[in-house]
């Protein structure tokens, strides 16, 4: 929720969202992470008074507002055991990968130690046993 709200601020400051703010096939409460990728667009308009005002991308704004509505209507993410948090972080990265690639991030960067492709089965960080985090 905080990430999306911060993102709304970016939108009104002339940044364009590069991907959909929701995951596919995860409910908000099923994912404690949410990364967003932006590009500065800087589209602007002159006001009658002659001032320059940055324009928010309409479609990005609509998708973001719809996502915010879903997050507001959703329970907070479940406390997750460490093993699950690691898996969620990995999926957050992997589902952002196409946007990162299109934004010009090279395969070398995306394959660097710590990036998703270096994670091997089974994931490090312990089991998926139930617990509080």
């Amino acid at each position: 929720m905080e990430v999306l709200l911060a993102g709304r601020g970016f939108l009104h400051a002339g940044w364009r969202l590069l991907h959909h703010p929701l995951y596919g096939n995860f409910l908000p409460r099923q994912q404690p992470y949410r990364s967003l990728l932006w590009r500065f667009d800087g589209a602007s308009v002159q006001t009658r008074e002659g001032a320059t005002r940055l324009l928010a991308d309409e479609w990005s704004l609509r998708l973001l507002e719809e996502a915010l509505a879903l997050y507001q209507d959703s329970q907070a993410p479940n406390p997750a055991p460490p093993g699950l948090r690691e898996a969620c972080a990995l999926l957050d990265f992997e589902l952002l990968r196409p946007a990162l690639e299109q934004a010009g991030w090279s395969e070398a960067v995306l394959s660097a130690p710590g990036a998703g492709t270096m994670d091997a089965w089974p994931l490090k960080g312990g089991s998926l046993e139930t617990g509080t985090a």
């Binding site: 959909h20 596919g24 952002l96």
Partner: peptide, 9 residues
């Protein structure tokens, strides 16, 4: 397909 980026969509 159902891709991630808005450009792809």
């Amino acid at each position: 397909n159902e891709n991630v980026t808005l450009a792809d969509k």
